[in-house]
Structure formats: structure tokens, C-alpha cells
Design a protein around this nucleic acid. Structure first.
Lengths: 189, 189
DNA sequence: GTCAATGATGACACGGCATGTCATCATCTA
DNA sequence: TAGATGATGACATGCCGTGTCATCATTGAC
């Protein structure tokens, strides 16, 4: 038996999620969270940079994106890499977690500061994808456009998937979104 | 002669910009800004929602985007509308302000919180463009994808335009970015 | 010409966020 | 057994952002 219960970080995340759900993000103070988790305020800020970060902790997305782009065969063309990565991310990190993601999303959408943080996380993902494409030899401008497009496709599809009771898979919606962009780009301009 | 000098908001913006440039965003307190502007702290927060907002005040971008999309001929295809809007925005709001925008950008890039706020402003622009396309009769998914693509093109081009000493116009870079995306999308997937 | 309404600002209090610093103490290591 | 390590507690502090009431020039009604 150690001096402290071992899972401080996870306890803080759980307590925060509960309290944010019960009384809202703004109405919940950090001392309330730490009280429920059996810790002190100072300890909260040792685990999370700020009050928002407790909802977003983890680098899974950029890390997985980097790995997928690095591991794809060198001969694979960029669009195929993108689509296959979308498939892998959708199936690994999203499928089967719709209820949980909806709860998280409801909290995030309820607060401006949390929406901002969400945007920042997506920007980090973009960076990772862009770097991955650059490492695959794409021109920086093309890599940037493709990375942004990929993250946008995922975002738009995720909105659709969580907002409505669409029966399609997240990945299927993403493919549709990509297809509609391709069609729009092909005409005019 | 009125009781107060009339341009409180502008004075606050100027003082803030000066102080952020001189000593950095984080090291500048709101009381310092208001002291230089000859006002009180409370007044600062009557004009700006928070300390970051003083650098981003104004809705020019979403407003102009909404107007451009609403005023374009109904017969014009979406891509052409997008490109022409990019041209108008580039020439009206960016051309000739490169030095000023570089100063602003340097401040924004120096602080995580300011980068977040920047992302939020771009998200607001996306919303406006998406709504504009929906009003023009596009399917929501297509409108969302096109709006995101437009804002992305502008962002990527702006990065290039401000970062390097590219001799091309912002609009020219934007067109190149769009073209490179079109090319990448046309192959594979 | 008087007076009430308006609206921007000042003055003050206050809760909460975030950080710096030092002490405490179980565990690990030599 | 003793010292190093590392997570946590305890305490102080500065700044952000907001609520509230007072002040006072301007405006407009009569």
C-alpha cells in the first residue's frame, strides 16, 4: 500500500467529468474537483496545465496519425494514404464510443473556452498530418492542404455522426464528405 | 468637449498593441494597458470580453464573407464564388498590410492562448462561409466541406505569404494552394 | 429653461485561476 | 541504514474577469 492511491490523474478526470455533467463546466471549481478526487488544488495543476485540459488530455490522435502516415507503403499515393488513415482512425478511436463522445461533446459545446481548446487539439492533429505528408515527400503547400482537408473531413463527418442519428459508419460519412468536396472542386473555378 | 476623450476603444487597442510588442502578451497586465490609455481596468472589460480579444476585435471577415456569398450571381457555380471571394478578401483586407499583419502575427504566435483565439476567429469565418453556401442552396455537407476548404486555402496561403518573402500576391498563392489540392484529390483514393 | 433619462466611466469588492516555493514522507537504490 | 527520488500537501500571491453602485456629461421631452 503506497502513501497515496495510485491513480490520481484518472481520479481527477473522472471527478471533473462527473461534476461538469452535473453542474456545468463554468459552475465547477477546481477545488470542487480535487475535493471529490481526494487531492488538493495544487496537485490538479501538476497533472493538467489548466482547468480545460482535464477534458482533452492525451495525444492519441496526433500520435496515431503520425504512425499511420509513417507506416503506409512508400508507393501508396497520398489520397489513398489519407482515406486509409481515416478508416483506421474511425474504426479504432471512434466506432463504438458514440454515446461517450456525445457526452463529451455536449460539455465542450456548452463553453466557449472548451470549444477553443477543441480547435487547438484539431490544429495539433493537422500539424501531425502535415508533417507526416512532408516526410512522405510531398511539397509543403500540398501537404498542408491535404492535412487540413483530412482533418476537416473527419470533423465534418464527426459532427454529422454525433449530431444526427445517421445509421452510416463514421468512415462512410467521411468518404461521402470527401466525395462531395471532390465533386465541388471538379466544377468551375 | 465631452467628459471623456471619445475614442476609448481605439486607445485601448493601441496601448495594448504597443505593450504587447514591448514586453510580450503574458508580461503585460490589463491595468498597465488601461493606465497607458488613461482609463480604468473595469472599462477595459466593458470594451473587450477578455485580454486576448483586444487583438482580434471586429467581425470584418465573417461579415465580408457573408456579403460576398450573398451578392454573387445565383447562377455562379460554388467554386467560382469561392475563388472570387478569395480574390476580393485578399485584395481588400490583406494586400498592402503585410508589415502590420506580420507584427500582429508575431504577437499571436508567441502565446498559446492567442493562438487558440486565432483559431476561434477562423472557425467563425468558416461558419459564415458555410451558412452562405447553404443559403445558396448547397447541401449542408458540401457547404461545410467547401467552407472549410476556402478558409484553409486562405490560412495556408497567408502563412506562406507572411512567413517567407514570396513575391507572389496572397491571392496567387491561394490559387496555387487550391490547385495543388485539386491535383492531389484527383489522383487515387 | 428645467429636469428626467441615458449611457459611458470610475470605484470597490470579490471569487477563481494559475503558479512559485518549501515541507513532508513513502519508495527506491546503493 | 542512509541518502536520493518523486509525488503530494500547505501556503502565499498576482492577475483575470465580473457584479454592483456611484458619478456626471449629454440628450431630449415638455
Amino acid at each position: 500500500m503506497s502513501r497515496w492511491r495510485p491513480d490520481a490523474r484518472e481520479r481527477l478526470q473522472r471527478a471533473a467529468l462527473e461534476l461538469f455533467t452535473e453542474q456545468g463546466f463554468a459552475a465547477t471549481t477546481v477545488p470542487e474537483i480535487t475535493a471529490r478526487a481526494g487531492l488538493t488544488t495544487r496537485t490538479f495543476f501538476r497533472h493538467f496545465a489548466d482547468k480545460r485540459e482535464v477534458l482533452f488530455a492525451g495525444d492519441e490522435f496526433p500520435q496515431m496519425a503520425a504512425r499511420l502516415l509513417a507506416d503506409a507503403p512508400a508507393s501508396m499515393d497520398p489520397m489513398t494514404v489519407l482515406v486509409e488513415s481515416l478508416r483506421a482512425v474511425s474504426e479504432t478511436l471512434f466506432d463504438g464510443r458514440r454515446a461517450e463522445l456525445r457526452q463529451l461533446r455536449a460539455i465542450v459545446q456548452s463553453d466557449d473556452g472548451l470549444r477553443e481548446r477543441d480547435l487547438r487539439k484539431r490544429a495539433a492533429l493537422r500539424e501531425a498530418v502535415r508533417d507526416g505528408f512532408v516526410r512522405r515527400g510531398l511539397a509543403p503547400l500540398t501537404a498542408a492542404m491535404l492535412a487540413d482537408t483530412g482533418v476537416t473531413v473527419l470533423t465534418v463527418a464527426l459532427d454529422e455522426w454525433l449530431e444526427r442519428d445517421d445509421e452510416r459508419t463514421l468512415f462512410e460519412i467521411a468518404v461521402d464528405a470527401l466525395e462531395s468536396l471532390r465533386a465541388a472542386l471538379a466544377v468551375g473555378g
